[in-house]
Design a protein around this nucleic acid. Structure first.
Lengths: 147, 147
DNA sequence: TTGCTCCTCACGTCACGTGAGGTGGC
DNA sequence: TTGCTCCTCACGTCACGTGAGGTGGC
């Protein structure tokens, strides 16, 4: 039942759900950003799981919000995959020193991403403030005229 | 004295000051995003004023923070120029109704830009929150191991 | 005069867009 | 079977990067 509900989405639906296009999704597969099922017969339809959708959404979000190149994005996502791998190792590790080391690496990766995001946030907030100031000034002049 | 201090910067310095490259600045001139002095003799050096630098900085900021295409950016900047023109008209207008109309148009333009900026801000803040949550979770596990 | 930056083509690249012609599944 | 979406080339485009070969100003 749960397995049947998987791998049933077609590229057009996926494009719609992720705010992309079929061409973009094929391109991401081409350059290795998306896995691209090995067992697909040449010429046959691609199909996608809900996890695939999540990954594409993640790519789109990082691409648009952080303005990274797809090469940088790939590096970042590989680091993320490495973390997932570490988490699996972590489950198996009994040695508390090993577990600490893994957790500290995770902290590093998260910190890197946070710095990128917070840098952008500061710039955007500055831009917002300037626009709000402008608006306040214009509204002030309007009020002067109205009374 | 003030006129002499103008139009003295070369393209390399301008690129450095605005975080771009000479090629980018020439390209923006080519597609009409930057004015490009008409009276420059073919083959002679371009030179820039402090106002030019401000314009380029504005372009770069909107390009990077809002992710607009240069076509969309041009439209937005033309709207901004139109507002500047309106401000000049505004100075001359004595009719309060005319002044109100001009101010209301200004409000519209500012509102459009604010919506773009605030949309981006919301997305970025959401991303930040997710990262902060992840970090908190990892730090919690670390503390468990340490005591 | 020497060295650096500038100039103008012009081809390359990244991240896709856009048909052209053909096949696949409800 | 019909219609829609899918497939694979392959060329086009946007926003520049990157030399190639030559000129300009301190």
């Amino acid at each position: 039942m749960t397995a049947i509900a998987d791998k049933m989405l077609r590229i057009g639906e996926v494009a719609e759900l992720t705010g992309t296009t079929p061409r973009t999704i094929r391109y991401y597969e081409e350059i290795g950003l998306l896995p691209g099922a090995e067992d697909r017969v040449q010429g046959k339809h691609r199909c996608y799981s809900l996890q695939d959708i999540e990954r594409i959404k993640e790519i789109v979000r990082l691409r648009d919000l952080l303005g990274l190149s797809l090469d940088q994005l790939r590096a970042l996502l590989e680091a993320e995959a490495a973390r997932a791998e570490l988490r699996r190792e972590y489950q198996d590790a009994d040695d508390p020193e090993t577990r600490k080391r893994i957790l500290n690496q995770s902290l590093g990766h998260i910190g890197t991403q946070l710095e990128l995001v917070q840098g952008r946030l500061l710039e955007l907030q500055q831009l917002e403030q300037e626009l709000v100031d402008k608006r306040r000034s214009v509204r002030g002049k309007l009020r002067e005229l109205e009374q």
